[in-house]
Structure formats: structure tokens, C-alpha cells
């Protein structure tokens, strides 16, 4: 049942047009952060307002929407965002990665490979990959304009000098289509390789920071590294205690107060399907 007091997918048409134009420019310049006049949404900044605005401007009434947070459909904020679109856009929803046409995500890329018929919308807290090296927007804008990414190389190299490896485990910076360095949102670096040459359209929304960016399908997305310290998509060296998967990203769960712990799939849809199918 759509809430009649609001327009389809909540946003007014002027706002959707503005967001749609930003999405298209983002696709035309992969990895470049397009400024957009983010609106105040009825949920707090930092809780997915960018992703929600991108999804709202993208949804068709016949879409099937999946919302996940930390890989799970049942995390509270995923539930809240899914309810928002059920209420304002009357779209069908699903927990199945394969059954969804639009997937909004926070912090994960589903384990099930995406297809050409899908759009993946990422919620982004800090879109600027250089932000923690250079807090000023005026300066980072210049860095991107000149593709002057030496600062990032220096930081990664300092990590190696200090720790013996690049000490970034999530929001690991990538280079898109050979030009822009981009923040992939706080996904674990385990997920980074899934972004490259992906058949689906990948859209990124940062509401508070007023930026939208995009990775078109089949675009090269390279995690920054060095020849002598190549990028490794690491995860916990365990198998899922529920479905037995040895190659999905795992959550660590504390099971007692005596150091007991177990590892289970972060992607609950993937895990449940494997468990049901008797894959374990």
C-alpha cells in the first residue's frame, strides 16, 4: 500500500530529475564523484540517505528490491529501509540476491554473482578516498583533477614500511577505468574484486557528503597495490559453521565467555540457500 501523501518513491519529481542527471554523469565519468543537492530524508544522514535517494530515483514500480546491511537482510537498518520503499513505492521485495532487480547495500557485495539485469546501489559514508589524508574538499578536488594520487601511494607504502603489509582492511581504495581513484564504500577488501568487470550497474550514493558516483558494467576496477606487495582479498581462514562454505566472507560470532567463537557467512541469503541445498 503506497502512502498517498507522498510521491512515488517519496522524492518529488524535480529532485528525482536532479539525481537522475547526476547518476548519468557519474556513469559517463566512471569513479568521479558528482556533486548533487542531497535532500533531507526522513532518516538520519549516515544511515543510508545517499543510497536511498539513488534507489528512489532509480526504482520502477515493477522492480523487486533487496536491501542488505552487513550482508544480512534482517539487520535493523536494512529492515527500516526496505519498509520505507514498501510504503512509498509499493515495490516487491525479496531476500534473494538472484531474484532482485535493484539491490541496496551497506558494507557488502553479495556472494552470488550479479547479472546484467541488476543494479547494485551502495550506501556511502565518506565518498572521498583521500579524505583521511587530506580533509579539505578544495584540495582533494584538485588532486582528482590532476590525477595526482601520489599521496595515496605514499600512505600505502608507509603501511608496508611499518606493518609489512597495506594495513587497510575495508574501504580499500580502487582505481576505476584507469583514471579516478574511488572509495568503494566500507566493504571488506575481500569484496573488491567483485566490483571489477561486473555485469551489473553499480551506483554509489553519499547523502550527507552530497556525492553520487558510478561504475558502469564491465569496467576495470583495480585495488591499489605494489608489484612487490600485491593486493590480497583476505577473509577469516575458516569455513562457515552453518553451510560449510570456504570461500564466502565470514562473521565471527562469540559463543560463550570462555573464548568460544564460530564463523558464519556474512551473506545470510547465500548461506541459507547453501544450507537448504544440502551443500554443507
Amino acid at each position: 500500500m503506497t502512502d498517498q501523501a507522498y510521491n512515488f518513491a517519496y522524492l518529488d519529481e524535480d529532485t528525482k530529475r536532479m539525481i537522475r542527471r547526476a547518476i548519468l554523469k557519474g556513469l559517463a565519468v566512471p569513479g568521479y564523484q558528482v556533486p548533487f543537492a542531497s535532500r533531507e530524508m526522513p532518516m538520519p544522514y549516515g544511515w543510508g540517505t545517499g543510497g536511498v535517494q539513488v534507489t528512489a530515483a532509480t526504482l520502477r514500480p515493477d522492480d523487486v528490491l533487496k536491501v542488505l546491511d552487513q550482508g544480512a537482510d534482517d539487520t535493523t537498518n536494512a529492515v527500516s529501509i526496505r519498509k520505507f520503499f514498501q510504503r512509498t513505492a509499493s515495490v516487491a521485495t525479496t531476500e534473494s540476491t538472484g531474484g532482485a532487480t535493484v539491490i541496496q547495500t551497506r558494507h557488502r557485495i553479495p556472494e552470488t554473482p550479479l547479472t546484467e539485469d541488476q543494479i547494485l546501489v551502495y550506501q556511502v559514508p565518506i565518498p572521498e578516498p583521500m579524505r583521511f589524508l587530506e580533509p579539505r574538499e578544495t584540495e582533494t578536488r584538485r588532486i582528482h583533477a590532476l590525477a595526482d594520487y601520489g599521496l595515496m601511494q605514499v600512505r600505502l607504502y608507509e603501511d608496508i614500511a611499518r606493518h609489512g603489509e597495506i594495513a587497510t582492511s575495508y574501504a580499500y581504495p580502487v582505481e576505476v577505468a584507469g583514471r579516478y581513484v574511488m572509495d568503494p564504500s566500507p566493504i571488506p577488501k575481500f569484496d573488491n574484486p567483485k566490483m571489477s568487470d561486473c555485469p551489473a550497474i553499480q551506483l554509489f550514493g553519499a547523502g550527507r557528503e552530497q556525492r553520487i558516483y558510478a561504475v558502469p558494467p564491465y569496467t576495470q576496477v583495480v585495488s591499489l597495490d605494489f608489484d612487490d606487495h600485491p593486493f590480497v582479498a583476505s577473509k577469516a581462514e575458516h569455513e562457515c559453521a552453518i553451510c560449510g562454505s570456504g570461500d564466502s566472507y565470514l562473521d565471527e560470532v562469540i559463543t560463550d565467555d570462555a573464548g568460544g567463537r564460530m564463523f558464519v557467512c556474512s551473506d545470510t541469503d547465500y548461506c541459507a540457500r547453501r544450507a537448504e541445498g544440502g551443500a554443507a
Partner: peptide, 23 residues
């Protein structure tokens, strides 16, 4: 509104990035 949203968002689950840091 921007500040409180971003400040309070750290209450949301961060299992995935925390797990990556833990590893």
C-alpha cells in the same frame, strides 16, 4: 542534522568492517 546523523550512525552494525580489522 548532518553531524548528529553521522555521529550516531556508528551505532549501526559494523560487523563486516570490524571483522576485516580484526583479521
Amino acid at each position: 542534522i548532518q553531524a548528529t546523523g553521522f555521529l550516531e550512525h556508528i551505532k549501526l552494525p559494523h560487523y563486516v568492517d570490524f571483522q576485516a580489522e580484526l583479521e
